[in-house]
């Protein structure tokens, strides 16, 4: 058990190291000189100034030294550097500022999706091929086929414009405007993101559950005279949720970097929109910082998922 945890932790560190190398190497692959981003294109290039800037940003060092410095700052000082473009803006501050929006959206989307997907998937397996299963399956198919920005626009039109219940754009921070105002601005984008996830999750639960319901221990549980709902949720759900958890972990990570479009539709100050603007303005340190941050969260979430398996299936604990 302890040995396994240690192993997982070692793997986590190794993966993070690989992530940092690859992300840093990305800088080299991008075309163009960072100097072009730092100095306005119109400025006459005084070689002395250029050299000074190169030294200031450490661009004159060789790649290994630059990587070492960057990693050092990142790990020891949680400093991912200072943006070339918006001079003086620290990458870390920008991430800190933007992360709550994106993380909250991703989390809410996953929670909303699970809230609906689990009962729907369980019902679908229990009532396999009956009318209610057919109906929910068709509904999930529709939810899966609608791109989330279309869902976002439709939701915005219905709840913000037609019914005038919620704001169509913008973001209220919990710390400033309070929880209720925050929920009002977050519920539509989160729901738009949740639809696809819900469809994926419910299909997974349904198919795994159908397999589980064939197991002998389900027959024994039923033969004890337990109510069907008890058998479904207390006996069948847990063994049926291993692949669900894997996908929830992967998709949560994907949502962190993948809310760009939704953030644009609802004009939200999230990580995705920052990443988008950083890419278009060649703000390499910013891109690097955000990428390495998302990757780190992703790796950590997936390690947590691995640990969650152990909670769910006691047989894994032994090995």
């Amino acid at each position: 058990m302890i040995k396994m945890l240690g192993l997982r932790l070692a793997r986590l560190v190794a993966t993070l190291f690989a992530v940092s190398v690859i992300t840093f190497a990305m800088t080299l692959l991008l075309p163009g000189d960072p100097i072009n981003a730092i100095l306005p294109p119109t400025t006459e290039r005084d070689p002395q100034i250029v050299a000074q800037i190169r030294e200031e940003y450490g661009l004159d060092n060789n790649i290994a030294v630059r990587y070492k410095d960057w990693l050092n700052d990142a790990v020891l000082h949680q400093d991912l550097g200072t943006s070339y473009v918006t001079r003086g803006q620290k990458v870390t501050d920008q991430i800190k500022n933007r992360v709550p929006v994106t993380a909250q959206l991703a989390l809410m989307a996953v929670v909303i999706a699970l809230f609906f997907a689990i009962p729907i998937g369980v019902l679908g397996a229990y009532r396999q091929s009956k009318w209610d299963d057919q109906l929910t399956s068709a509904g999930m198919q529709v939810a899966l086929s609608i791109p989330n920005f279309i869902a976002a626009i439709m939701l915005g039109w219905l709840f913000a414009i037609k019914l005038d219940l919620l704001p169509n754009t913008g973001w209220a921070r919990i710390s400033k405007e309070g929880l209720l105002a925050n929920l009002k601005t977050s519920i539509l984008p989160a729901t738009a993101l949740a639809l696809t996830q819900m469809a994926i999750f419910s299909r997974l639960v349904r198919s795994d559950m159908i397999a589980t319901l064939q197991e002998n221990y389900i027959l024994s549980a039923r033969a004890k005279g337990l109510p069907d709902r008890f058998v479904l949720f207390r006996h069948a759900l847990r063994p049926s949720s291993l692949s669900l958890i894997t996908i929830v972990g992967i998709n949560f990570g994907a949502l962190l970097g993948g809310t760009v479009v939704i953030e644009q539709v609802f004009s939200l100050p999230g990580l995705g929109s920052k990443l988008l603007s950083a890419i278009s303005s060649r703000d390499i340190l910013m891109v690097q910082g955000i990428t390495v941050f998302i990757a780190t969260v992703y790796v950590i979430v997936n390690t947590l998922v691995d640990l969650l398996y152990i909670v769910i299936d006691p047989r894994i604990r032994r090995s």
Partner: peptide, 21 residues
Amino acid sequence: IWGVEMAMVFQDPMTSLNPVV
């Protein structure tokens, strides 16, 4: 009736207990 009036012992004890409970 199940469990109270009639109960069953199944063939394979390796698969008739829920592994995660």
